[in-house]
Design a protein around this nucleic acid. Sequence first.
RNA 1: GCCGGGGUGGCGGAAUGGCAGACGCGACGGACUUAAAAUCCGUUGGCCGGAAGGCCGUGUGGGUUCGACUCCCGCCCCCGGCACCA
Length: 821
Amino acid sequence: MPPQPPELPYNPSAIEARWQSRWDADQLYRAQPDASRPKWYELTMYPYPSGDLHIGHWYAMAPYDTHVRFKRMQGFNVLAPMGFDAFGLPAENAAIKRGIHPHTWTMANIERMRGQLRSMGAAFDWSREIVCCMPEYYRWNQWLFLQFHQRGLAYRAFAPANWCPSCQTVLANEQVVGGRCERCDSLVERRDLNQWFFRITRYAEELLDFSGLLDWPEKIKLMQRNWIGRSEGVELSFDISHAGLSEKTIKVFTTRPDTVHGATFLVLAPEHPLVERLTAPDHRAAVAEYVLQARRASEIERMSADREKTGVPIGAYCVNSFNGERVPMYIADYVLAGYGSGAVMAVPAHDERDFAFARKHRLPVKVVISPPDWDGGELSQAFTGQGVMVHSGRFDGTPGDRAFDAVASYAEAQGFGRRTITYRMRDWLISRQRYWGTPIPIINCQKCGAVPVPEKDLPVLLPEDAEFKPTGESPLARHAGFLHTACPQCGGPATRETDTLDTFVDSSWYYLRYTSPHYDKAPFDPAEAKYWAPVDQYTGGAEHAVMHLLYSRFFCKAMRDLGIVSFGEPFTRLYNQGIILGEDREKMSKSRGNVVNPDDYVGTLGADAVRVFLMFIGPWDQGGSWSSTGIQGISRWINRVWAIAERDPAALAGASTGGVPELRRVTHKTIRRVTQDLERFQFNTSVSALMEFTNHLGRAWESRAVDAAAWREAVRALLLLLAPIAPHTSEELWERAGYAYSIHQQPWPAWDEALARDEEITLVVQVNGKLRDKIAVAAGVTEAQATALALASDKVKAALDGKQVRKVIYVPGKLVNVVAG
RNA sequence: GCCGGGGUGGCGGAAUGGCAGACGCGACGGACUUAAAAUCCGUUGGCCGGAAGGCCGUGUGGGUUCGACUCCCGCCCCCGGCACCA
């Protein structure tokens, strides 16, 4: 519970409600294309309608809103829409638990959150709201799916998938974090299922190219780069023609072809398609047992790198095409089926994993790359660096920097290898075995196979009367009315695809829908999108680095290639805010009991106090912790602003004007500081600058060293600078000061460099780098004058103490350093 | 293990080669009050000193520089991401 609030000279709730209604009635934030002004599309990640707007939402949205309002006052034609990420599991889980329909649950939450978002005083254009569980939205998911399908970008495959036993659905690789479900933290299992995928890997190379982005955090780009995981290597063929199979070779991917002569065994993934046919009869039992065990092992177990290197021989061999050596073959679960060709040549001398496996299974270690100062003896650990090739036949003596190319070119010339690039990223698994999502618009016909639903039949509607009990199969599969249909191609009996789309599909293009949310001929009106898109500034959490932010980039490029959009990057600038922590500096959670409910503070201190406090805690990207006393300090400051703005400048009538230039200078300096800070998302220092300005105004008033005109100018600037930060209070004080409605339609104040310039500066005087004196001098002081003044200082003389002056450093307008010894 | 970010008063933070600690919180003292709350004013990095003033001080050890919180090298700690990807 928040502590007793200080007494306020005004009622924040009343003021805030009044202005919110007025802004709403006047449609102050309605965005319309306007060719006469530069456009600015600023977007914050839309929330999941979980029920209540929590302090984390405020932390994401209040500074965002301040920036939006700032851009608007600067004269940009701003689009700042809001909507809801309304499909997804929580709604369905609530339905199962409490018997409420997911639609009812979701819409009630949205209603509640709309009100809370309004209470923030955010300048959203609500006429553009999107709710992606509505058929008007998700039909375009289906339409886009069909376009992707037509281009081969959506396909179905039977493949091992990540299965979350608690969510009762498969997950994309990106949604598995450390072998656990990203959402509910359950251990993920492996299941072979027929699943739909988006071919994001086709864009792997282009997704590594960030040149189309104006300003993205390096951290996010790096995370995406690592996730995509490009590696250049060579695919080498090892001969198995003696086995009498249709396949004459087995392929391995390696980034170190120069170590090929040291391959003393080959390792296949247990799931490798050739395992069954290559295994010798007397090894069948052991191999079958190992394969079973590997399948049972959880992702977590298989993924830990320091785990014992288990594996079994399959009783078969292949031939190394470089030296004709027989190479025995093993299966081991440290080799992943989904990467490269699912098989590796094991070079224990030059690979740590292979070394560990060779140690355990007493396999030979053959050195083929000479480590520095190598004595020709056995290695105690793998040498993974580059070096001169040895024991490698024709390649002996090839230096490390040429080894890759020498071997790769030879293999290509001889026809048993080719240079290739492999990516760590897999295709995006998009099917979910759940109800509350976009039905995949495919009809399965016994005769015709997977037939796309004709565009004219879209949307494929979610039936309202489905049962939600999770069974591991989509609830849609048990809804006869939904399931059974006719094949669009042959007219015969057919069944609908019952899986629904991953909700990340919704968010991959929602920014485009905001440009024309009611358009019904396409996902968006091309003319509107052409005007507004792409997003100029996107803000949101960094946790979406390899999910939403990567998927959206992929979608954008795919849509560009389909001719739907003309650009290749959805978000040209990105800023990630940090995380707001509880008062105990721990992550907020119900179990810790440190959850802050913003509504409590909005009701007592007002939304403006909450907004300003969240911006004041520290740099936005670093996050910060809540403080119930800290926000009271903000409230006190708003009170001081109130008191200052309410003073009648007429009281200054007989005041001396000696201090006028000083107040004007501070005013213009403050305008400059706040403008530059807001530009760079440095909200904390903008607020500090305004606090200092307020303090200065208070002192100036007390000293009576101002005249009414300068005072009015200063207060007017204060309110304008405050407008984007504390929109309600500034609007109220603006009106009370007699200015015309609305402060939010005023141009951003400009500063005058000449007025902001200091006439007198403090010259810092150092002796040997230590501060010894400060001298007030005219701003235009010359080096000779400054030096003379410094040397004339008694304190400097004392510090010099008869020492010889060797040098004098002068930094114009700042400092004199006397070097003596 | 690898990659990234960070370490500054009692606390959140400011300063990115030139006055360390702006601004705010907290604390202490004072004014107002019968009293308290609220508000306002003052003090507040440490040490020495009666004071003037001096010395020390930005995780840690070196280095560059007239001058380093800021740049370079080594180490320690915290946070985030990735982690058998051949």
